[in-house]
Design a binder for these strands. Structure first.
Length: 408
DNA sequence: TCTGGGGTCCTAGGACCC
DNA sequence: TCTGGGGTCCTAGGACCC
């Protein structure tokens, strides 16, 4: 018998992930209002915050000063670097017990495909296949909670976007299934901003045009408004129907650092916002040298060379400029730094304060790929390797280029 | 004291080649 | 002298996600 499309894709999202991990490391934080991110007095933002502070209007992405204003009683902490990935790995290992089709979408978000698993999981007590899948997702959510101690929410739907929206509705610590046929009704009352792909800019534009919910968007009458938002409407419409290929997509490259197979990573970049805006050219150049060092180090650790180097510069007024240049593939600090300095000359206004600097590598190729004969003199590869060996034992800061010291 | 840092993807224009 | 398209690569900017 033909079995039609089913709601078989699941999104599992860890609730207030960084906060939850910090609470595992330090149980005294449980029940307290916690903000992970920048410390008060700095220019950073909120990375994650507990439900106790959300009650005061604190949100992730909010400037830390604003968060302090809204919740002065909260515990503010930087977070523990290096531990989150390991917890995410443990979560993934649990999920893989239930289906081989698990994808990592971000450090706290996973997609699972249960298509074809109905026979495996169906029990006599289950009213139908959907009920079986929902039961198994509740069980897996519970396993993550019990075995690791991390609260999670899960959504089930016929597409990634549906599963994602369902998991958001299920928060905190819940499960929500949207069965085939229920999609339109489920989506109808949701604010447009809840759709993955509609950000603050698009949402504002829609609201200005009198469109507030996804239901209103989908039912716009033919006319100029419908024409104006046609592309957005199409994307929402597609999310309501099962698609054929690439159902849960691929792992995000950023979370496949150790994949030795292929170099599909798109880009490597590092940027830094100064504590206070900077005018001295030596400090600008010192920071760029430091950033060049860091991206080259990361590129080498992935066996990558970059064909394109990008400089990013943000002035005090938040005006942000980028300049990029394509060069023979390299992961050598001196080459990247030299290139960045040339790009800097195109954009730097010595009269203005610099807020942020960034260096990016893109157009990456494998280390062995030789697209052009080396014309200039390049340090032998042993030099880079020797630097990296020292860092492997003592950390990135253990060995630095002299010019990097000038950034402070 | 407004507004981090790591990414991906899309668009649009211009150069250049056939 | 006037004037095609198509394709690819490069660059700059911006929206979006977590």
């Amino acid at each position: 018998m033909f079995s039609g499309p089913r709601a078989r894709l699941c999104c599992l999202d860890l609730d207030t992930f960084f906060v939850s991990v910090e609470r595992l490391l330090n149980p005294e934080l449980c029940g307290k209002p916690v903000v992970v991110g920048a410390l008060p007095g700095s220019r950073g933002v909120v990375t994650a915050c507990s439900y106790e502070v959300r009650a005061f209007g604190v949100r992730s992405g909010m400037g830390i000063a604003e968060a302090v204003r809204r919740a002065p009683h909260a515990v503010f902490m930087r977070g523990t670097s290096g531990v989150y990935g390991a917890y995410a790995q443990r979560v993934k290992a649990i999920l893989e017990r239930y289906t081989p089709e698990v994808r990592t979408a971000s450090i706290d978000e996973f997609y699972l495909d249960f298509s074809g698993c109905e026979r495996l999981y169906r029990r006599a007590a289950d009213a139908d296949d959907d009920a079986a899948i929902e039961r198994i997702v509740r069980e897996l959510r519970e396993r993550v909670q019990v075995e690791i101690g991390l609260p999670a929410s899960a959504g089930i739907g016929c597409t990634r976007a549906m599963a994602k929206m369902a998991s958001n509705v299920a928060k905190p610590a819940g499960v929500r299934m949207v069965r085939v046929g229920e999609e339109r009704a489920f989506v109808a009352e949701l604010p447009v901003r809840r759709f993955p792909g509609i950000g603050p800019v698009a949402a504002e534009e829609l609201n200005q045009a009198g469109v507030h919910t996804l239901g209103e968007l989908l039912s716009l009458p033919e006319g100029p408004r419908r024409a104006r938002f046609r592309r957005t409407t199409e994307r929402v419409e597609q999310a309501l129907h099962p698609t054929s290929a690439q159902r849960i997509g691929r792992d995000r490259p950023a979370f496949r650092e150790h994949d030795p197979e292929h170099l599909t990573v798109g880009s490597i970049s590092n940027e830094r916002t100064f504590g206070q805006d900077v005018r001295e050219r030596v400090r600008v150049e010192g920071q760029l040298c430091s950033l060049a060092e860091r991206v080259c180090w990361r590129a080498r650790s992935r066996g990558a060379r970059a064909r394109t180097v990008t400089l990013r510069l943000r002035y005090s007024n938040f005006e942000t400029l980028t300049r990029s240049r394509t060069i023979p593939p390299t992961n050598v600090e001196a080459k990247v730094y030299a290139c960045v300095l040339e790009l800097l000359a195109e954009v730097l206004d010595p009269a203005r304060g610099v807020r942020l600097l960034g260096v990016g590598l893109s157009n990456l190729v494998g280390e062995d790929t030789q697209l052009a004969l080396p014309l200039g003199k390049e340090p032998p590869p042993q030099v880079g390797r020797a630097i990296d060996d020292v860092r492997a034992r003592f950390g990135f800061e253990a060995i630095r280029l002299g010019a990097s010291a000038l950034r402070k």
